[in-house]
Simulated scan of single mutants.
Amino acid sequence: MVVSKAKARKQPEIAFRLPGEQGKMLAAMVGVALVLGLALTQVFHGQVVDMRAKAGQLQARNTAIANENVRLLAARAQVASKTQVAALAKTKLKLFEPDQGQVRRM
């Protein structure tokens, strides 16, 4: 074993000391900054929560409107069908389809 006789060097200590009044002022400013930071975080969190709730409501409304659109398209297709139009023409307008002999082609 090799034993080193060199002395271990001491690392210089960095001391950051402030006079009493400046230290108290710095501590107060750090405390105020911390409280303001937390308050600002809470405000942003509240806005995010509100936006998520509004997005959920809008998504539900969009789904309801899409379902209503599908229902209305089905109702329109039924009303515009040839059998429905012919039935309404017979009952309300007293119209009928001509027989084969009644149609003349020119």
Rank of each mutant, 00 (worst) to 15 (best):
M25D: 06
A87E: 14
K24D: 12
V30G: 06
G101K: 04
R105I: 08
R17E: 02
L73F: 11
N67L: 14
I65R: 00
R52S: 05
K54Q: 11
Q57C: 05
R61V: 00
P19C: 10
A86W: 06
N67E: 15
R71L: 12
A33L: 15
T63S: 04
Q47L: 12
P12L: 07
R17F: 04
A8D: 12
L72M: 09
K54N: 10
R71D: 14
F96S: 09
L34D: 07
K90L: 02
A15M: 03
K10N: 13
E97V: 08
L34Y: 07
A66F: 10
R105P: 03
T91E: 05
A75N: 03
R17T: 08
R52K: 07
A8N: 08
L73N: 12
G20Q: 10
R52M: 10
V103K: 15
V70C: 01
F44D: 11
L95N: 09
L73K: 15
Q102M: 15
R52A: 00
L88Q: 06
A75S: 08
R71V: 13
E13W: 04
I14V: 13
E21V: 02
A89N: 14
I65M: 00
Q11F: 00
A6F: 04
Q22A: 11
R71A: 14
D50K: 12
A64C: 04
E21P: 00
L88E: 11
A60D: 05
G23V: 02
A39W: 12
G101L: 10
V43W: 04
S81E: 10
K94P: 06
L72Y: 02
A53G: 01
A87T: 09
V3R: 14
A86Q: 08
K5N: 14
F16M: 08
I65Y: 03
S4G: 00
K10G: 06
G23C: 08
L73E: 12
Q78C: 10
E13N: 04
Q11E: 04
G37W: 01
D99G: 09
D99W: 02
G37A: 04
A60I: 03
L93M: 07
V32D: 12
R76W: 11
L40Q: 09
K54L: 12
K90I: 03
V103M: 10
E13I: 03
K54M: 08
L73I: 13
T91F: 09
V2T: 00
M1Q: 10
V85Y: 13
A8T: 13
A60M: 02
K94A: 04
T91Y: 13
N67P: 07
F96K: 14
F16N: 09
E21S: 03
M29K: 15
G20I: 06
M106P: 15
L58C: 07
P12H: 07
N69Q: 06
K54R: 13
L18M: 12
